[in-house]
């Protein structure tokens, strides 16, 4: 049988190597290094903080948050689940994973929100962004690791950067969607009263898009959690590392323990952020309402 390879072979891998090693890395090394600095900073501090706070206190805070936004059931689940994690000896790893997830989500929000707003305001920009997001979401998560290692090396921070890239699409997508679905007559009214684009964004678009944006945040969080585990392959720590080590040593117990820890953390975070988005009311909530609710609890009425 004849196959195309008999006629010609393409050294695709060599080309990529040449491109990345020969051009991208030498030319942009400082840039990639610089990009790691803020991530490392946030991650290390957050990690140190979470490891410093006593387990009981963290558990109580999470249980209270769960109670506010997700109901009593989830609050009880949080208490039992977190205690279980502590009892199987994985509390420090869980906190490291939490720090990694929180850092990733923070950066996803910081980058994704402006991108989403930009995409909502410019059809042109959205036309360019959309296929990129589509590709990002279809690439298997493992594939991200290769270029990341080449550009950033191995370790905790490259793992987070891989996570940020993997988890950012829903943030951009849903911010865009939320802002675009604000009723046209409302934006027209805002314009008719002489508001600037910024005023319209703050007074109208972001508050009305907030539920959708929070749904995006929830999805981003879940993606980050799944990626943070995979990122252990390139040297990130936390529960992912526990699972990996367990698998490497054919230690079924250890790997399962890590897996259970991840699942418990995932359920708690998912329910709390979902509840946050729904806000406990049917009506659309304003940014201020959410903030006061976060600070003071569900009953707080907005003050004018």
């Amino acid at each position: 049988m004849i196959s195309p390879a008999d006629i010609a072979t393409i050294p695709f891998d060599d080309w990529i190597n040449a491109f990345v090693r020969g051009w991208l890395v030498p030319n942009f090394r400082p840039l990639f290094q610089a990009a790691q600095v803020p991530v490392t900073l946030v991650l290390n501090n957050l990690n140190a903080f979470l490891l410093f706070v006593p387990m009981i206190l963290t558990t109580v805070v999470f249980a209270l948050a769960a109670w506010r936004w997700a109901g009593r059931g989830i609050a009880i689940f949080t208490l039992i689940g977190f205690s279980f994690i502590d009892m199987i000896g994985l509390w420090p790893e869980t906190m490291t994973t939490l720090a990694m997830v929180a850092t990733s989500v923070l950066f996803c929000a910081m980058i994704g929100l402006p991108l989403g707003i930009l995409a909502a305001r410019s059809d042109m920009f959205w036309k360019i962004t959309r296929p990129i997001l589509d590709i990002m979401q279809t690439i298997p998560s493992f594939v991200y690791l290769v270029p990341i290692v080449m550009l950033f090396g191995v370790g905790m921070t490259p793992g987070i950067i891989a996570t940020i890239i993997f988890a950012i699409p829903p943030m951009v997508r849903l911010t865009n969607l939320g802002i675009r679905s604000v009723r046209v007559d409302l934006t027209e009214a805002a314009r008719a009263f002489g508001s600037t684009e910024w005023q319209m964004l703050w007074d109208l678009q972001i508050p009305l898009a907030l539920r959708t944006i929070l749904a995006g945040l929830n999805q981003t969080l879940m993606l980050a959690l799944s990626m943070v585990v995979i990122a252990a392959l390139i040297g990130a720590g936390g529960l992912g590392l526990t699972v990996n080590t367990g698998l490497g040593r054919l230690d079924v117990g250890g790997a399962t323990a890590g897996g259970v820890g991840i699942v418990i953390l995932a359920i708690v975070l998912d329910r709390i952020t979902q509840g946050l988005g729904e806000g406990g009311t049917v009506r659309t909530v304003s940014l201020r309402q959410v903030l006061t609710r976060m600070l003071r609890g569900k009953g707080a009425a907005p003050i004018n």
């Binding site: 007559d185 009263f193 009506r283 659309t284």
Partner: peptide, 14 residues
Amino acid sequence: TMVFQHFALFPHWS
């Protein structure tokens, strides 16, 4: 200023 057919009031404001 303008008054709109479907009111166009901001639903999240008093």
